[in-house]
Each structure stands twice: as structure tokens, then as C-alpha cells.
């Protein structure tokens, strides 16, 4: 069985063409990036606003409650509703993208919000106290400190989107999911398992740039990376005078 999977993965025929691995891989990456950009454009500003202003916290709760709705059910329901309204190939793409965005938003939103919320009250207080405007507090203090959790939210969203985009092949979306869904339908286990392996690898590979991003943009003061130097108190000036 493993041999047939390897055969499928390594044969030139399965890689080429508009329904070959390469094309499907690019489709999958394309959906993921599209969805991630849309979801980030919605969720990051919203999360920053909720965290900064303290208003609209119910939105975060509501978005998280959405996670109890089964992904598959959401996908099917929205496709059924939108299918008759949308023309041509958009009928397959649009519902899937909407569902994927709906799934990605809660992860990014709660990550961003939790990040801003994690700013120590003392740091926020000091920022206002030394004369930062609300906007400066947001950009210079809250956003940089929120970055680690914000990026975690993005990473969770990427995993979610890659996984669900695979399932969305069932409602006609392209991408690597096609090999799984079509392989299951035709009982072609080599293509099913091969597709599954590719999806697993893709999820890992897409996670890597975010790990790198985190290293690049998150201040060492917030991570453990600078902790190797232990706090110390060796640099005091001479102790105060001899009289009590």
C-alpha cells in the first residue's frame, strides 16, 4: 500500500496538468492566503479596538461560541443557501471562502484581543501618564506587546483554514482536498493517502513563516530569549552615608 502511495506521489503524471498536484497545491495555498488576508483585515483591527477601548467584548465571546458549530455543517448550510444565488464557478468558491473566513476570524480575533488584554495595566498606565495619545498607546505599546498572541492566533487560523479547505473539496472547492475526496469516492487509496500526506506537509510548511515572523517582529523583551541574563543587583552606587 505504501509503495502505491509513493508511486502516486513520485509519478510525473500526478504532478502535471490543471488537476495535477502542483496546480492543486497552488490552489490550496491561494485559498489559504486569500482567506487569511480577509480574516486578518477584519479580525486584527476589531481585536485591537476591543482590547484598546474595552468595548464590544461580547463580540469575542460570540466569535468563540461560533466554534461549537460543526465546520462541516456550516460549510454545507452556507453552500446550500448561496448556491442558487451565485453564478457559475463563484457558486463553489464564494461559500467556501466565506465559511473559511468565518472560521479564521475567531482565532485571530481572540488572539489579538487577548494580546492587548495581556498588556500589564502598569505599562498602559505609564504610557498614558507620560503623555502618549490614545493612538500612540495603541501603536507603540499595545500592538507590540500583543504581537506574540496575535501571531499565535494567525497560526491557529492558518491550520484551521488549511484543514477546512481540504474538507471544502466536498462542496466543489479545488485544492489538495480534491485528491482526498475524489480518491475516497473512487476508492483510490493511493491518491487519498497521498493527498492527505501533502496536506499535512503543507500545514507544517505554512506554519514555518509565522514562526519566523514571530522571531523577527516580537521584541526580545517579551520572549524568554533575553532571559539568559539573570536579573541582578550588582550595579548600585555606594550605599548611603554612615549616619542613620
Amino acid at each position: 500500500m505504501i509503495a502505491s502511495i509513493l508511486d502516486w506521489l513520485t509519478s510525473g503524471a500526478s504532478w502535471s496538468g490543471s488537476d495535477g498536484i502542483l496546480a492543486r497545491l497552488l490552489e490550496h495555498v491561494g485559498y489559504t492566503l486569500l482567506v487569511l488576508v480577509i480574516a486578518a483585515l477584519i479580525a486584527i483591527p476589531l481585536g485591537l479596538w476591543i482590547g484598546h477601548s474595552g468595548r464590544g467584548r461580547w463580540l469575542v465571546t460570540a466569535a468563540n461560541a461560533l466554534r461549537a458549530v460543526p465546520t462541516l455543517g456550516l460549510l454545507f448550510a452556507l453552500t446550500l443557501v448561496l448556491l442558487p444565488v451565485l453564478p457559475g464557478s463563484a457558486a463553489f468558491l464564494v461559500p467556501s471562502v466565506i465559511v473559511l473566513v468565518l472560521l479564521a476570524v475567531p482565532a485571530i480575533l481572540s488572539g489579538t484581543y487577548a494580546g492587548v488584554e495581556a498588556v500589564q495595566p502598569a505599562a498602559r498606565d505609564a504610557a498614558r501618564g507620560i503623555g502618549m495619545t490614545g493612538r500612540q498607546v495603541l501603536w507603540q505599546v499595545e500592538l507590540p506587546i500583543a504581537l506574540p498572541l496575535l501571531i499565535s492566533g494567525l497560526r491557529a487560523a492558518v491550520l484551521q483554514v488549511v484543514a477546512t479547505a481540504t474538507v471544502a473539496a466536498y462542496v466543489g472547492l479545488g485544492g489538495l482536498g480534491r485528491f482526498l475526496i475524489d480518491g475516497l469516492a473512487t476508492q483510490d487509496y493511493a491518491s487519498t493517502a497521498g493527498g492527505a500526506l501533502l496536506v499535512a506537509v503543507l500545514a507544517l510548511v505554512l506554519d514555518a513563516p509565522f514562526a519566523l515572523l514571530e522571531r523577527l517582529v516580537v521584541s526580545p523583551g517579551l520572549t524568554g530569549r533575553s532571559r539568559s541574563l539573570r536579573p541582578s543587583e550588582p550595579n548600585r552606587t555606594a550605599p548611603a552615608g554612615g549616619t542613620t
Binding site: A123, D125, G129, G131, I145, L222
Partner: peptide, 21 residues
């Protein structure tokens, strides 16, 4: 904000920004 920039402000624990040197 202008007012506060002209007044030194010190709080408990220092209130330092953890992400800045």
C-alpha cells in the same frame, strides 16, 4: 497628552514597557 509630557510620572514597579530596552 501635552500636559503629561511636561510632568514626570513614576508608578509602582516602574510601569516600564516590557518590549523596549
Amino acid at each position: 497628552a501635552q500636559l503629561r509630557r511636561g510632568i514626570g510620572y513614576v508608578i509602582q514597579h516602574g510601569g516600564l514597557f516590557p518590549h523596549h530596552t
